[in-house]
Write a protein that binds this DNA or RNA. Structure first.
Length: 467
RNA sequence: UCCCCGAUAGCUCAAUGGUAGAGCGAGCGGCUGUUAACCGCUAGGUUCUAGGUUCGAGUCCUAGUCGGGGAGCCA
């Protein structure tokens, strides 16, 4: 009898003889001489119902003792269901218990509602719930969608390093990577820690971005992207930050900020479409139980163009909002960073759809962003979406060596440390651009989930690296 | 890191400074082609930790730990 995943069983014709393997979700007994056992194996949202007759030899001894979480292996015939609630079910001819649940009373994910906060403490078991199973499948589907999007457009996936010994990565606290004895490190004659004796013979860290590395590949392969884990040692305690998260960073040669915006917009839309088309079962669940507007939001986002404005226009719009009575905690002033409340106002109240803001004052952006002709703004862009805020940050890169050097000087960075980055501008430089998309923030947007800790299997945050 | 809120049964939550309760889950029984099943019974507690105030603290005070919401940093 062929072993079918539940998702395959649902697609098989009635009369098929099948083997199902999975975990018990619920059990209901009927005095009509049978038990109904819902079994899920994670292959799709819906569990499949086994109809287990009381005539089985182990019915009294085992089937009636099944509880949520037990693993089972059942054989039977796929039949049209006599009951409501499911089209097909398995009329079981045998049911073998593979693994019991030790103590059903304390099984952490019993068949009842649990809060997400509680489930984070049992992250090893929470994926057995409806919500976390759906998130896990959506996460996979979006990851595959990302690779497909770029593959179809001729981008090459570049595996930029996780460990970086070049201190070129700029802003953001980094995690140190070291094999020195923390209690008794090698020391220089002056008594300082002697990093020359460390594993990489210099200070090393976990990457905060693959961008600088991937630029080198863009300046040879033309269209490339990275997709991998990223680490930030910031003490951020919010529902939108993780110490370890996944980031997608495309980088394109012979392309300017406008191409960058075009790619970012079609990228987001493509992924929203991917979620709706390929995870319809899980999306229906999210829409019903997590966020009743999520499918509508994704659909509308796909159908309408993103708003595109400059930072200067954004400031003017926000000032008009204030003039007509809108209250902000922080002032709106040209030259200052847009606060979360300002970004939210733009995307949620003024335009009510995704907004791309570009051309920010150079003093609030990174050294590598291309200086505009006005001499005071750079070709940077942020994509803001309702409910999440910033989901993408990117820019056209400064390809002119003299301008780059001037910016390095302005921001008090050491030219020598960026020697290979500067080489790209010395040898056949080209206009190029790219952006970074927070993968978990994308999953938040697609699912309607509220907390970023619930869309990654094992979240790492300040003070927490359990599991 | 800053501001605010919280921690009581396996889970979600009640309890005026005066005998710690309910719903769900679990166990047992009943009923039923069941499906958030339903009905009855039973078990289940170091009230986060350490101090303090009080005749008496789940409740008030102090410190800590953990969690949530918001802010900053960003993706």
């Amino acid at each position: 009898m062929p072993w079918l995943r539940v998702v395959e069983a649902f697609k098989s014709p009635p009369g098929s003889r099948v083997t199902i393997k999975g975990w018990v979700r619920t059990r209901r007994d009927s005095k009509a001489g049978m038990s109904f056992v819902a079994v899920g194996d994670g292959s799709c949202f819906e569990p499949i119902q086994l109809v287990v007759p009381s005539s089985l030899a182990n019915y009294e001894s085992e089937v009636l003792r099944l509880t949520t979480g037990c693993s089972v292996e059942a054989e039977g015939e796929l039949v049209a269901s006599q009951g409501k609630g499911q089209a097909v079910e398995v009329q079981a001819t045998s049911l073998k218990v593979v693994g019991w649940v030790d103590d059903p009373d304390t099984y952490p994910v019993s068949a009842k509602r649990h809060t997400f906060e509680y489930l984070r403490d049992v992250a090893h078991l929470r994926v057995r719930t409806n919500t976390f199973g759906a998130v896990a499948r959506l996460r996979h589907t979006l990851a595959m969608g990302i690779h497909r999007f770029f593959d179809e457009r001729g981008y090459f996936w570049v595996h930029t390093p996780i460990v970086t010994a070049s201190d070129c990565e700029g802003a953001g606290e980094m995690f140190r990577v070291s094999t020195l004895d923390a209690l008794n490190p090698a020391r220089t004659p002056e008594g300082r820690v002697d990093w020359a004796q460390d594993f990489f013979a210099k200070e090393a860290y976990l990457t905060v971005s693959g961008q600088l590395n991937v630029e080198t590949y863009a300046c040879a392969l033309s269209r490339v992207y990275t997709f991998g884990p990223t680490f930030r040692a910031e003490n951020s305690n919010t529902s939108r930050h993780l110490a370890e998260f996944w980031m997608v960073e495309p980088e394109m040669a012979f392309a300017d900020i406008h191409t960058n915006m075009d790619v970012a917009e079609s990228f987001i839309k493509s992924l929203f479409r991917c979620a709706l088309d390929e995870r319809a079962d899980d999306m229906a669940f999210f829409n019903q139980h997590i966020d009743k507007t999520v499918i509508d939001t994704l659909t509308k986002t796909i159908e309408s163009p993103f708003e595109r404005i400059t930072y200067t226009e954004a400031v003017n719009i926000l000032k008009k909002q204030i003039a007509s009575g809108k209250k902000f905690e922080y002032p709106v002033e040209w030259g200052a960073n847009l606060q979360a409340e300002h970004e939210r106002c733009l995307t949620e109240e003024v335009f009510k759809r995704p907004v791309i803001v570009r051309d920010y004052p150079k003093q609030i952006k990174a050294f590598y962003m291309r200086l505009n002709n006005d001499g005071r703004t750079v070709a940077a862009m942020d994509v803001l979406v309702p409910g999440i805020g910033e989901i993408i940050g990117g820019s056209q890169r400064e390809e002119r060596l003299d301008v780059l050097d001037a910016r390095l000087e302005e921001t008090k960075l050491q030219k020598e440390a960026y020697w290979w980055y500067r080489d790209l501008r010395r040898y056949g430089t080209v206009p190029h651009c790219g952006f970074g998309l927070g993968f978990e923030r994308l999953i938040l947007a697609c699912s309607g989930m509220q907390n970023i800790r619930d869309v990654i299997p094992f979240p790492r945050t300040p003070g927490n690296a359990k599991f």
